[in-house]
C-alpha cells in the first residue's frame, strides 16, 4: 500500500510519524467528543480545537515529508495550515452565536452564567 513512500532521513521520518500520530489522536478525540457529549456547548469544544490541531498535525507532517524529500518547502501547506487556524475560531464563534440564538438565549442576559 505504501510502497511508493520515498526514503527519508531518520529524523524526518520520526518527526513525520510523530506529527501524524499526534494529529490523528487529536482529530479522533475531537470527533469522539462531538459524538459523545450531551449538550451543544460542550460538543463545540472538541472539534473546534482538537480537529484543528489534528489537521494541523497532518499538514505539518506533510510539510516535513516533502521538505525532506525535495529539499524544498511547498507554500500551499503553510497557507492551508494558517488558513485553518485563523478560520476555526471564526466558525466556532458564529456557530455558538447561532445556537444561542436558536435556543432563545440572549447572550446579554445577566443570568447566563448561572445556567449550565
Amino acid at each position: 500500500m505504501n510502497g511508493t513512500l520515498a526514503a527519508l532521513p531518520a529524523w524526518a521520518d520520526a518527526l513525520c510519524a510523530f506529527l501524524l500520530v499526534a494529529g490523528a489522536f487529536f482529530a479522533f478525540v475531537g470527533s469522539l467528543g462531538l459524538a459523545k457529549l450531551s449538550s451543544f456547548e460542550k460538543r463545540l469544544h472538541g472539534p473546534t480545537k482538537a480537529a484543528t490541531l489534528g489537521v494541523g498535525g497532518a499538514l505539518l507532517a506533510s510539510i516535513v515529508y516533502f521538505a525532506a524529500r525535495d529539499d524544498a518547502v511547498y507554500g500551499h501547506e503553510f497557507l492551508v495550515t494558517l488558513f485553518v487556524f485563523v478560520t476555526a475560531p471564526i466558525s466556532a464563534h458564529l456557530m455558538i452565536k447561532s445556537a444561542l440564538h436558536l435556543a432563545g438565549r440572549d447572550p446579554r442576559a445577566p443570568d447566563i452564567e448561572a445556567r449550565r
Partner: peptide
C-alpha cells in the same frame, strides 16, 4: 476572541 477560542477549554461567544 480568536485566541480565547483556540486556547484552554474556552470559547468566546459574544
Amino acid at each position: 476572541a480568536g485566541i480565547i477560542t483556540m486556547t484552554p477549554g474556552t470559547l468566546s461567544c459574544a
